[in-house]
Structure formats: C-alpha cells, structure tokens
Amino acid sequence: MLEIRNLCAEVEGKPILRGIDLTIRDGEVHVLMGPNGSGKSTLCHVLVGNPKYAVTGGSATFNGKDLLALPPEHRSYEGLFMSFQTPTEIPGVSMTNFLRAAVNARRKYRGEEPLGASEFLQLLREKRKLVGLDAHFMSRGVNEGFSGGERKRNEIFQMAVLAPTFSILDETDSGLDVDALRTVAEGFNALRTPRTSAMVVTHYQRMLDYLRPDFVHVLMEGRIVRSGDASLGYAIEERGFDWIRDEAATAQPEPQP
C-alpha cells in the first residue's frame, strides 16, 4: 500500500528526516515510537502534504501513485487520513458544513453525486455513535470550544465518516484519560478491515495493548533505527530509548572529523 524510500525532509531549512525507509502493506498497523524531536510528526505531516514541510529527497508511493506529487486534498481522496496531534479550531465553520464539504468533494473526485441531506445526516448519526460524540457538536464550529478529549474523539469520528484506507494517528492518545483512550482506540479498531492500514505515533503501552500492532519502529534523528513486532514497544516502555541509541551508535558509527 505505502512504500517510503530514503525520504528526506526539512522544516524552515532544518533537516528533520534523513532517509526513511518503510513499507506498509494492506491490513497492517505500524507503530512509530521515538524520543521527542526524532521526526515522527514530521513524517506524518510530510505524508499528508503539509506545505510547511519541504521534501528534499526520496520517494513515497501510495498504491502505485507518486504520493509526493499530489496536493493534500488529492491524497485525502486517494485514501489518506491524519488524526492531528493538536486538531485545529475553525471558528464559525460548523462541523456539519465542514464534513459535508469534505464528503462531497471526495464523491465528486470519484465521479459520484453529492450525498442527499438525509443520507448525510444518517451517516453522521451512525458514525457519532462509534466514538460517543453528542449531536450538539455538529452545529458547533470545528473543534470550537471542544475539550482535548473531545477533539481527539472528533478526529476518529471524522476518520469514520471519511472511511480512509490508510490512517495516520499522530499521538491521538496523548492527553486522554483512560476511558476516553478506550473509546478512541475501540473506535479505531472498529474501523479496521483487512484492506485498511495505519501508522500510529504513540508513547504509551496502553495504546499497544488496544491496537496490537504488526510492527513497531523506532525513529531517532530522522531515521528508523530499529524495527520489530509489538514486543519492541513493550521493551521501550520498560527500558527507555537509551539502549537502542547505544546499539544504533555501535552499528552505524558517526563519521569522524
């Protein structure tokens, strides 16, 4: 589904990603872990085409298409979705209008007619239940006055409405209490199919418990320095990152001046 080769990117002239290689196949869930500033969020944003990040090398192919050549909205139509670490507040644009625009733009891209009013509302009703988001949020501005937990629920709700084939969850679990985390994770799991994949950035074991990922990767200084199964995630929870950093340093010594 997704093939990333030697991907390099920078933010405001500062290199962050220094050659990412990653392959994600249909149905797989990959977890990204790593210390703060290692490039996890940058990788997420680069994949969905945030114009603040500049790709300086490498490639990303999504279902055979050159992902990096597509504008953000087309990446969305192709099936990419990102749950933002800090979902943006858009005062005055109601959730309903926002989602109607998103849903219908997607349908137009696929050559389908816009969704009728009652079908659309039915869709919202159905998906709201999944994450326990109350109806009154639909008439509010996007994330306007939402609590941290409500914003994260709202991200998963939007994911449910847009039904992506590849989801990126950038620390969707952070700032959630245990109940909210369960709701969000169960919501995510309910949307999984053998044909959908995900890349999940997390710092917490609890998320690993819920998601049961196929792979765990550790990012450091813009590179994947170690990959493994879920047990790698549990090892990090127990031992921290230093042992991986030490091993990585031994395996790939820095060039001496």
Binding site: N50, E73, T88, I90, A101, A102
Partner: peptide, 12 residues
C-alpha cells in the same frame, strides 16, 4: 486551518 481542511479533502 486551511491545511487541516485540505487534509480532510476540502479543495483549497
């Protein structure tokens, strides 16, 4: 906000 909306598929 513009990028957030575009990520969701709303044309620029």
């Amino acid at each position: 906000a513009l990028f957030y909306m575009r990520q969701r598929g709303i044309p620029e």
